[in-house]
C-alpha cells in the first residue's frame, strides 16, 4: 500500500474574534488520509471547511485541535513546504511582473538550482502555452492565462504534493481539458494531488478518491466509482439505433419487468463542439493574443530527468 502523504485526525478549527471569543467552528473533527500517488478531491459547498483544511495543510493557519501531518512533517515546516506546490484559489500574482519573471521569482523562492532554473521556466512556459506572452506583464493577462501561469509556478520545483485550489477557475474548455490531462500525467509520474473544486464533473473525471465536507465534517468519503455507484440504474451506450429496433428493444425490456426511463438520440456535448471548432481554427492558421495550445508535462516533473 502506498504511504500516506497527508494524515489528518480529529482536526478542529475555531475562528475567534478580537476578544478571543469563539465565532465560527469551521472544522469539527475532520479525519482524512491521502495516499502517495493519488488524486484526491475535496468537495463541499461554500463554508463547508475546504479552504480551512487546505490552509491548515499549508501551515497558513493553525489547528485548534487534532493531528495533522504533511509529507511526514507538521504543516508549515520548511521541509514540508519545499515539497508542496500550491495553486491559490485567486490568481494573486504580482501584476507588474512578466510571466517569465513570475516563474523566476517562484523558482528562486523555492530554491531551484541556478543550473536548471531557466530550463524549467522555459519548459513550463511551453507546457502552459505562454511562451509568446512570457514577457508581457501578468496584469495584462486574461484570467485564464493567469491561471495557467499559476499552475506553472506550482510545478517549478517539482513538488511531491500538489495542492490545487479551484484549478480550472477562469479557464476555457480547452484549458480545462489540458489541466485534466496534466493532472493525469502528474499522477502517472507518482505525484500526489489534492484538488478543491466546485466543478464536480471535472473532479469526477480526474480524482481517484473524494470526500464531501459539510458543516466542518466529512459527510462522505471514498473512491469515486464507489460513492457514485447506483444499484437501481443501468446506462447503455450503443451505436445509432433505428426507431423500429428501438421500439422492439424497449418492448423486450418491459416484458422483463424493467422500466425504461430515458432514451435519447446521440449528440455531441458543447465541450466537444467547442474543442473541435478551436482546433479547426488553429489548423487554418488563425492567431490569438491569449494562450497558445501548450504541450505535455516537461521531463523534469518526476520523470527521467533528475535535476532537483
Amino acid at each position: 500500500m502506498a504511504p500516506d502523504v497527508i494524515r489528518i485526525k480529529g482536526l478542529r478549527k475555531v475562528f475567534r474574534d478580537f476578544w478571543l471569543r469563539a465565532r465560527v467552528e469551521a472544522l469539527s473533527g475532520v479525519d482524512l488520509t491521502i495516499r502517495s500517488g493519488e488524486v484526491y478531491g475535496l468537495l463541499g459547498p461554500n463554508g463547508s471547511g475546504k479552504s480551512t483544511t487546505i490552509q491548515i495543510l499549508l501551515g497558513l493557519i493553525f489547528p485548534t485541535a487534532g493531528e495533522v501531518e504533511v509529507l511526514g512533517a507538521p504543516p508549515g515546516t520548511p521541509e514540508s513546504k519545499s515539497r508542496i506546490g500550491y495553486l491559490p484559489e485567486d490568481s494573486v500574482f504580482y501584476p507588474f511582473l512578466s510571466g517569465r519573471e513570475m516563474l523566476d521569482l517562484s523558482a528562486r523562492l523555492c530554491r531551484v538550482p541556478d543550473a536548471n532554473r531557466m530550463e524549467r521556466i522555459e519548459a513550463l512556459l511551453q507546457m502552459v502555452g505562454l511562451r509568446e506572452a512570457a514577457d508581457r506583464e501578468i496584469g495584462d493577462y486574461s484570467k485564464g492565462m493567469q491561471r495557467r501561469i499559476g499552475i506553472a509556478q506550482a510545478l517549478i520545483h517539482d513538488p511531491d504534493l500538489i495542492i490545487l485550489d479551484e484549478p480550472t477557475n477562469g479557464l476555457d474548455p480547452l484549458g480545462v481539458r489540458q489541466v485534466k490531462d496534466w493532472i493525469q500525467g502528474l499522477r502517472a509520474r507518482g505525484k500526489t494531488i489534492l484538488i478543491s473544486s466546485h466543478l464536480l464533473a471535472d473532479v469526477e473525471q480526474v480524482c481517484d478518491r473524494v470526500s464531501i465536507l459539510y458543516g466542518g465534517k466529512v459527510q462522505a468519503e471514498g473512491a469515486v466509482e464507489e460513492i457514485l455507484e447506483r444499484d437501481d440504474r443501468t446506462i447503455w451506450i450503443t451505436s445509432r439505433v433505428e426507431s423500429e429496433a428501438l421500439d422492439s428493444a424497449e418492448k423486450l425490456l418491459r416484458e422483463q419487468g424493467l422500466d425504461v426511463i430515458s432514451v435519447k438520440p446521440g449528440s455531441k456535448s458543447l465541450e466537444e463542439k467547442f474543442l473541435e471548432t478551436v482546433e479547426e481554427a488553429r489548423e487554418r492558421g488563425e492567431t490569438t493574443a491569449g494562450a497558445e495550445p501548450g504541450g505535455g508535462l516537461p521531463a523534469f516533473l518526476g520523470g527521467g530527468e533528475d535535476n532537483k
Binding site: 490552509q55 499549508l58 501551515g59 497558513l60 520548511p78 513546504k81 519545499s82 508542496i84 500550491y86 491559490p88 494573486v92 500574482f93 517562484s106 528562486r108 523562492l109 523555492c110 530554491r111
Partner: peptide, 9 residues
C-alpha cells in the same frame, strides 16, 4: 498566503 507557502520566504 501564496508567498509564505514557498519554502524560501
Amino acid at each position: 498566503r501564496w508567498l509564505v507557502v514557498l519554502s524560501g520566504t
